[in-house]
């Protein structure tokens, strides 16, 4: 199959895998301390988890609406004040639950891929 077809397949696969996992990566990133948009983009950047910074904002808006993150303003040394995102109690609980489910799930997938399901 042509290499560009394989590339499209990879992109689609990544999109599917990110759906449902990336939001928890965002939450996990916020566990330590509140962060602003660009900080989050930088720590999740690299092309595997997000392919461009802007894709974070629809996710953050959704997490906020769900009550998992809340926002506040803090002055910035450069330019306008920044909107910071911080985890709520529900947000903390959501990451915990995800961590509990993800560990066995990821391990099972890896075992499958290595040819030893169970």
């Amino acid at each position: 199959m042509a290499p560009e077809v394989a590339a499209v397949e990879r992109t689609e696969l990544l999109t599917h895998l990110r759906r449902g996992t990336l939001e928890y990566c965002l939450l996990a990133t916020l566990r330590g301390a509140p962060a602003y948009g660009q900080e989050l983009a930088r720590s999740l950047g690299g092309g595997t988890l997000i392919d461009s910074e802007g894709t974070l904002y629809p996710l953050l808006a959704r997490l906020r609406r769900r009550g998992w993150v809340e926002t506040f303003w803090r002055d910035s040394p450069h330019g306008p004040p920044r909107r910071y995102y911080s985890l709520t109690l529900d947000g903390h609980r959501a990451v915990e639950t995800f961590t509990e489910v993800w560990g066995p799930f990821a391990a099972a997938v890896t075992r499958c891929l290595e040819g030893d399901p169970r």
């Binding site: 660009q38 802007g54 904002y57 629809p58 910035s76 330019g79």
Partner: peptide, 14 residues
């Protein structure tokens, strides 16, 4: 919410 945060992102980047 999305539009405002995208705008803020660009403005603070600039």
């Amino acid at each position: 919410d999305i539009l405002a945060s995208v705008r803020e992102h660009v403005e603070s980047e600039l």
